[in-house]
């Protein structure tokens, strides 16, 4: 495993409150470039909440209050002069349920690049769509039906379409919130292979319920429990030789 030490995202003392509920307790974490980082832990442990902090999706929830820093490229994304729209443009996100827009496959991919002015309508846009779909491993399945609705695809295809849509705007980081939990094993396998492919170009952070999945794809794994980051280390370490008792209990299936 390549030992890259360049830090992509540095989270420093991140606290999050839902109203009176203190949901994340002083998280410190460095996420590395071109690696897959898995966030694991029992439901309600705050792993998804933490993920959403990284592209400021939590801003959409009115009762949420966030303290601490999320530093990307030497800039705290919660600084006053940072536009959350610009943050989300650089930090893409794939959701648990595949959620393609009720538009054609082509429009699904082209929508964001066109709005961002990354490409113009015409052949350059066609190329970008093709490139993104190829990267997402979907091109061969859909190249003859780009104008059919994205919602007509199977679940696994839809999820890869969502990934294609995300990488079409060339983000630095891709956040994935349990991207395969709604999919069948074969689709899951395809997505996992795709993730390993994509980490050459992107830093990927994945929330997963499935420990085997973390074991299969992740370079680094972070174990969350009740809003605390219990342990964060290389995946092998977490699974074979965890430092904390709680981690071991979880890994060995004593709760979760």
């Amino acid at each position: 495993m390549s030992q890259k030490n360049s830090t992509k995202i540095s989270v420093q003392n991140l606290n999050l409150h839902y109203g009176d509920n203190h949901a994340l307790h002083g998280i410190d974490m460095d996420i590395h470039t071109n690696q897959i980082t898995a966030l694991i832990g029992p439901s309600g442990c705050g792993k998804s909440t933490f993920l959403r902090c990284l592209n400021r999706m939590n801003d959409l929830i009115k009762s949420v209050r966030i303290e601490g820093k999320v530093i990307i490229d030497n800039k705290n994304i919660y600084d006053k002069d940072v536009d959350e729209v610009a943050v989300r443009k650089r930090i893409g996100m794939v959701f648990q349920q595949p959620n393609p827009f009720p538009k054609s496959i082509y429009e699904n991919v082209a929508y964001a690049p066109l709005k961002h002015g990354i490409t113009q309508k015409g052949s350059t846009c066609d190329e970008l769509v093709e490139k993104s779909l190829i990267q997402a491993g979907l091109w061969n399945e859909v190249k003859d039906k780009l104008s059919t609705p994205g919602t007509s695809l199977s679940g696994g295809q839809q999820q890869r379409l969502c990934i294609a849509r995300t990488i079409a705007i060339s983000p630095d980081v891709i956040l994935m919130d349990e991207p395969t939990s709604a999919l069948d094993p074969i689709s899951t396998e395809k997505i996992e292979a795709l993730m390993l492919e994509l980490k050459q170009q992107y830093s990927i952070i994945i929330v997963t319920h499935n420990m085997q999945q973390a074991g299969r794809v992740a370079d680094m794994t972070a174990f969350f429990h009740l809003g605390d980051l219990i342990e964060y280390a290389e995946t092998e370490t977490i699974f074979i030789n965890p430092a904390k008792q709680k981690t071991e209990d979880y890994i060995t299936g004593r709760y979760g």
């Binding site: 030497n74 006053k80 536009d83």
Partner: peptide, 14 residues
């Protein structure tokens, strides 16, 4: 948010 900052130090300035 206030996105008026135009410093070169802000990588998110767009």
């Amino acid at each position: 948010s206030n996105y008026s900052g135009s410093q070169a130090s802000n990588p998110f300035y767009d």
